[in-house]
Nucleic acid binder design. Structure first.
Lengths: 208, 208
DNA sequence: TTTCATCTGTGATTGCGGTCACGGAGTTTG
DNA sequence: CAAACTCCGTGACCGCAATCACAGATGAAA
């Protein structure tokens, strides 16, 4: 018995059964690269436990943080690309130990046709990721560095669900495709205005 | 008899028939706003003729060009949002007279279940728009203004399918959320390097 | 053809963010 | 404890892009 039922409580018995017969649980270590640029998807992934950081990869090894995948999410790209056997220029990094449920792509068709719930789920997955990308575009198209940083921090606090995140200034700079000094200065400004407090490897939220 | 068959040649007879019984052709004038921010989608749109410019709308009326919709495309958002009755912060402008085929949202379910072609089409629509958004993110996350401008111009030439586009520097600046002077200067540089030529209201491609 | 609106070119200035250079603070390792 | 590493703070500098201020060009309207 897998965790599917627990993590996807609105999937009904039948769908769960079907999933369990065609797919299987897989695990990844913390720090493992689950999705790498240029790779073909051979299966769709439903996230059961842990957290996956999804990046866009630039031409010269730059990266740009897009969003987190969390339990109950599916990797939108894995669903779509799987159905078309396409590659992607996306990077998915397990930032914690991860349990996922893998569904070989040849079963997507049947699932789509037999379970309305399933394609609702797929569409909703896509829709929400699409919205998230649009918000990312908002930030980098319309906002300045300090606003982008706030947006970034909010998303971190939100998904980690904690007042304190463990991260270095350099990592933030990498995620945002900026530089450490700039981030440091802006963080300092946020600290001065009593909105966060900073210590080595850690940022804690005061008020946003 | 609609143009559906012509524009979507790989939909089979049955699906076309079904579509024609549940939906209908609609038209929009050039310059008409087909999708406005905050609006609920009541139907899905398949584009039959014309061109639609899709923007992301910023908080203070800024806009940012995302992509064109062309005949054979569907508005990805209209499909997804339609199924969930969500709003969107997206703007869709008919830049030519437009013919489209509108499908009331209550028929999406049936279509999804009965026609594998249909959900393939929906997924593929979504996937390609997703990829397009990722490319847009690439540009604004990793590239400088002159590179972004080139990318923008290429997309214009590609979709208009002509060596000459009719556009003012101000419009480009608006689409890219930049300013006219900056665009003018960069265009001049491109002209000096013999890659484009400029005349009033027009840019023609020499070599990219 | 004169007038007027729109579009384009170009200098001057400013500010944000990226880069360089360095020093200091905090942790880990031998 | 000392050495080595990682992380953080800060000044100096620079370049790109936004803004301001005009002037000239082009085309439509009167």
């Amino acid at each position: 018995m897998t965790d599917l039922k627990k993590i996807f409580p609105n999937f009904d018995e039948e769908l769960i059964k079907h999933l369990e017969t065609v797919g299987q649980e897989v695990e990844f270590d913390e720090g493992e690269m689950m999705i790498r640029p240029g790779q073909y998807f051979k299966q769709s992934m439903l996230l059961l436990d842990g957290r996956v950081k999804v990046y866009r990869e630039g031409e010269n090894g730059d990266e740009f943080f897009l969003y987190y995948l969390e339990p109950g999410n599916a990797c939108a790209l894995s669903i779509i690309c799987a159905t078309k056997n396409e590659t992607s220029e996306i990077k998915g990094l397990a930032v914690t130990p991860v349990k996922a449920f893998a569904i070989p792509l040849q079963h997507m068709d049947g699932l789509m046709r037999e379970y309305r719930q399933w394609y609702y789920f797929v569409l909703e997955t896509y829709r929400s990721r699409f919205e998230e990308l649009l918000q990312v575009i908002d930030q980098i198209a319309f906002h300045s560095m300090d606003e982008k940083l706030e947006f970034y921090l909010k998303r971190q606090f939100d998904t980690i669900k904690s007042k304190t995140i463990s991260i270095t200034h350099q990592q933030i700079a990498d995620d945002m495709n900026s530089s450490r000094e700039v981030i440091s200065r802006l963080l300092k400004k946020l600290e001065n205005s009593k909105r966060i407090s900073i210590s080595r490897n850690e940022i804690t939220l005061l008020s946003l």
